[in-house]
């Protein structure tokens, strides 16, 4: 009887300690399990955040585009027309009254101011959104853009090779925006004398190379990595294009954008 009890006591002690041990191990396992699930969850959330962020960027790009179009149209149609009406009236005054001396000077100066204002409105609205992008397509718009900048402090050369495609959808507009941004960057920051924009068409893709003979750029430099570069990378991401810095020296820079023609 006494012997039996001893072994039973031992049993109880073993069972008891086992039970406590299992509890502790269970607790440890619980923490490990929790941490692992947390990590997975975190990863999932991170991916979702990234997707969300991308979506927001896309939306922002889209809304910028519509906004630009709206402002350009407004500028063009309202302010342009009002300036024109003002000019008509001034011209009417000029033809109705014989101005002389100071009055004549004032009249002709006002006329010139109005001319310049209309030109500015036209230029600004064109820079915001090429009015006829839908009609002229990518290549002509880029060409026109280069022509407009050519000779204004630098030479801007436009070259095109391969079988040109008439391309005018939203992706084309994005390409146009990227080129615009790249060339503007070169004009503003690179102190370049010659900027070259080269379009190379092939069956599957369009290569756009923007090169200049300026001072190059530093990607973590505020100006270049700022809004401009952010815009460029996001836009090229949006259209699934590849952006490549081919050359970046103090003697010049070249950036190549490869856009697959079929998305």
């Amino acid at each position: 009887m006494a012997e039996l009890q001893t072994s039973e006591v031992v049993n109880i002690i073993i069972i008891g300690s086992m039970g406590m041990l299992i509890l502790c191990v269970g607790f440890a396992v619980f923490i490990a399990l929790y941490q692992r699930r947390m990590f997975q969850e975190q990863e999932k959330r991170r991916i979702m955040d990234l997707e969300f962020q991308n979506k927001m960027i896309q939306l922002q790009i889209d809304s910028t585009e519509t906004e630009r179009k709206r402002i350009a149209a407004d500028l063009h149609d309202s302010i342009g027309s009002l300036l024109w009406a003002a000019k008509l009236n001034i011209a009417f005054l000029g033809r109705s009254v014989d101005f002389s001396g100071e009055l004549k000077d004032s009249y002709s100066e006002t006329m010139r101011m109005l001319d310049q204002s209309v030109d500015s409105v036209r230029r600004i609205s064109w820079e915001l959104t090429p009015e006829a992008f839908n009609h002229t397509g990518l290549a002509s718009s880029i060409k026109e853009f280069c022509t407009r900048l050519d000779g204004k402090g630098q030479k801007v050369i436009y070259e095109e090779s391969g079988r040109s495609v008439f391309w005018k959808d939203d992706r084309a507009l994005m390409v146009y925006r990227i080129v615009q941004e790249l060339v503007n960057n070169a004009v503003k920051h690179a102190q370049a004398n010659v900027i070259r924009v080269r379009l190379k068409w092939s069956a599957q893709a369009l290569d756009v190379e923007v090169s200049d003979d300026g001072v190059g750029f530093v990607l973590n430099d505020k100006v270049r990595s700022g809004v401009g570069w952010w815009n460029i990378t996001n836009r090229s991401n949006k259209i699934g294009a590849k952006l490549l810095v081919k050359e970046n020296t103090p003697k010049g820079a070249a950036i190549e954008l490869t856009v697959p023609l079929e998305s």
Binding site: H76, D77, W84, L88, A91, V118, R122, A132, T136
Partner: peptide, 26 residues
């Protein structure tokens, strides 16, 4: 105000007789 070449070309083909920019001198 729209003196973009494409517009003008289309209108030329349509048979209009002249174009003026909304900035023309009287």
């Amino acid at each position: 105000m729209h003196t973009e070449e494409v517009f003008i070309l289309n209108l030329m083909e349509l048979g209009v007789h002249g174009f003026l920019n909304k900035n023309a001198e009287p």
